[in-house]
Amino acid sequence: MDYSIDELISVCISRQIEDHEVVAQGIATPLVAAGYLLAKMTHAPDVTFLSAIGQALCRDWAPLGVATIEELWIGRGLLTVSFVQAACDLLPRFGPKEFFRPGQVDPCGNFNNVYIGGSYETPRLRLPGSGGIPDVTVFEENVLLYVPRHGRHTFVEQLDFKSGLGHDTQRRAGRGPRYLVSDLGQFDFEPQSGRMRLISLHPGVTLRRVQAKTGFELLVSDKLLETVPPTERELKLLREAIDPLGVRTLETLSGAARRERLRALLQKERLQLSEGEFHADRHLF
């Protein structure tokens, strides 16, 4: 069965989730939401979500939306807290597993979501900011990364700013990222050196291509694998139950193409809403 790269990334994310875990989702990360929900519907029925939107511990969920993105979690919380409580109490207490998308990542899994190029005071590109990344990466054991568009601008030898702590000599607690998935392959971090190591190539991708698109020397596992493609069941769940609208495709696009796709998705979403078929127990939206 044919699949797209966004589907493969969500499936890889799903396969990193174990049953009974608490998993956290940040904002604007539909590939992660899709992956977590896929895990819940397949091998990890007992996961609990800690969501940035709605600030709640949830087990129930709704399909992914754009204008109605809040439907995914709000009103479904087992326990709703303020973001102050989430940051000070829940995140340190539960240490959830979380996938982050770095603006830049270095060979040891340190990463940057603050600025790229120029200086801190007058950057070439100011990124939105670090959210909770410099808070949780300094003590958590379960940090994972994903990069929807693998390129030398993201995989860099030297970061412009270290907002996420990797396998770094400065570290006093927790551990650096365990895993990274991109649109080209899957990686871990070699235990001794803490350096990024290619462990699996996605179907059709060559080692040469991954190295050419990476701004530093990659370690390569002795047992380099090929990523197992999504199964028919995984694809069916992603397309029909979790994300019938196709929100997961946004993260693999940028600029004008992304805005064009957004307009198409918003139109489709509004049509589904007016026809009342989007979500069976949707109330006021």
């Binding site: 604007a28 070439r124 990124l127 939105p128 929100v247 946004l250 992304r258 957004l262």
Partner: peptide, 22 residues
């Protein structure tokens, strides 16, 4: 702020420009 942007819709345009220009 700990984040300044428009989430799925992209970067916050006037913020991004103002920071770039110092």
């Amino acid at each position: 702020t700990c984040y300044f942007g428009l989430e799925t819709f992209g970067l916050a345009p006037m913020f991004t420009q103002a920071v770039r220009e110092g």
